[in-house]
Computed example of a mutant assay.
Amino acid sequence: MGKPPDISNSTVLEREKYIKDNFYCRGNCEICGICKVYHGKSPEVVYAEYIAGKRNFQEITEEYR
């Protein structure tokens, strides 16, 4: 997983691709933990404001730590 695209110089499609490529269901909940971290919400919902360019990735991530 590389660094998330900065909202100031990336497109909605680039940010959406980053989330989809890095936070997808791996089909093994015991190993993955994405659902647990995001309280059962899909990463696309959690990062919707990042994808839309309204908030940065790190700000949203900090809310779920």
Score class of each variant (00 low, 15 high):
I51Q: 10
V37P: 01
Y24Q: 06
S10Y: 15
S8R: 12
N56S: 07
R26S: 09
V46A: 01
E59N: 11
G27E: 14
Y50S: 03
E14F: 08
N9M: 09
K41Y: 00
R15V: 01
I60K: 15
I31F: 09
K17H: 12
E59V: 12
Y47S: 04
N22P: 02
D6I: 05
N56K: 04
T61A: 13
F57L: 10
C25A: 13
P5G: 14
P5V: 02
E62F: 10
N22R: 01
V46P: 04
E14G: 08
Y64K: 05
G40D: 07
K17A: 15
C35A: 09
N9L: 11
H39N: 14
S10T: 09
E44P: 02
P4Q: 05
I34C: 07
Q58Y: 01
P4R: 02
G53I: 06
E14H: 07
Q58P: 08
V45S: 08
R15I: 00
I51C: 04
E14Y: 07
S42V: 00
G40W: 14
V37W: 00
Y64D: 05
R55C: 04
T11D: 15
E62Q: 10
Y64A: 02
S42D: 14
C25F: 11
V45I: 13
P5L: 03
M1R: 07
